[in-house]
Write a protein that binds this DNA or RNA. Structure first.
Lengths: 157, 157
DNA sequence: GTACGAAAGGTCAGTAATGGTCAGAGCATC
DNA sequence: GATGCTCTGACCATTACTGACCTTTCGTAC
């Protein structure tokens, strides 16, 4: 329990806790140099430790003056609701399963009635039922994004 | 946020915000001199940062007394963020256009940096480039749904 | 009004400087 | 030895920036 990835993770979290805003900007190359590792390792740490399921969003730009920005969202990463979302929404989901999931989260108290209605609306947006396969994919992506958004927004305080 | 292009972009936006009308006039050569760069770099900044997707229109004239005018769009009170989303996202959208739209909304103040990063992450997630046509369609749907969701979410209180 | 030179801006290919991806090797744990 | 996490290197994609060359416009001489 002391891998290089762990050190990089700690370092980034320390960085995040030391700034007033909830985001930091780094350069992949510099960080790799500081830890004497391959640049791709930084990418590895970011995808495994700073993904959306853990409460972070990463944004980057390539090319000259490129950067990586890490945003920390407000949620407790180990909350039950996030666990459920992580497990329940795959790459593809049908309408009923999506609806059930939303209902279940509302029941758990993770989603207010208001939020549940909005998530449901977003997920059904543009669903004309003509391309079932496409719909399943879109539904999964929208569902995951909106749920994570709501869940990481509302538990901030 | 450290490249010369970024500085030139900031400078021009500052200029735009300091005038009563929504347009400014510059000379490519003077600006290049001020930033100590090649004149073509100014053109580069204009095409990448001040295009129509981001809400700007550029007009120019060559020869003696030549000039470049930059007009900012979207300042009309009736063109709110929701309208822009409905109009800009069609049935299919490429990666760059999606990114530009998110950037424009962030610039308008409709999206916070957090929310912009969030939407961007949701829209670009799972984009493996193996089925470009399908991705374009999925991207448009996810973009519209998440944008409408985030925008209506933040304006409801 | 034509010709020409000077003074703008436009275009584009090429180079450099980033970050992204992914297969596979290494290593730890069970 | 199977499984899963770490880590890397080779290769790819994107963005920044420049210089050489092109086009347009104006002013002036004739």
């Amino acid at each position: 329990m002391a891998s290089l990835s762990d050190y990089i993770e700690s370092y980034l979290k320390l960085l995040l806790s030391s700034v007033p805003d909830d985001w930091v900007e780094i350069r992949r190359r510099d960080l790799a140099e500081r830890f004497r590792c391959a640049p791709s390792q930084i990418s590895y740490v970011l995808t495994t430790r700073f993904n959306i399921e853990r409460g972070y969003v990463v944004e980057s730009r390539r090319g000259g003056g490129g950067y990586i920005r890490i945003f920390r969202l407000g949620a407790a990463p180990e909350s039950d609701a996030l666990e459920i979302v992580r497990g329940a929404v795959g790459d593809s989901i049908d309408r009923k399963a999506a609806d059930d999931l939303i209902a279940r989260l509302a029941e758990l108290g993770a989603l207010s009635a208001h939020d549940a209605a909005f998530v449901r609306a977003a997920v059904l947006e543009g669903d004309d039922g003509r391309q079932p396969e496409l719909e399943r994919i879109v539904r999964a992506r929208v569902l995951r994004a909106t749920l994570l958004f709501v869940l990481t927004q509302s538990t901030t305080e």
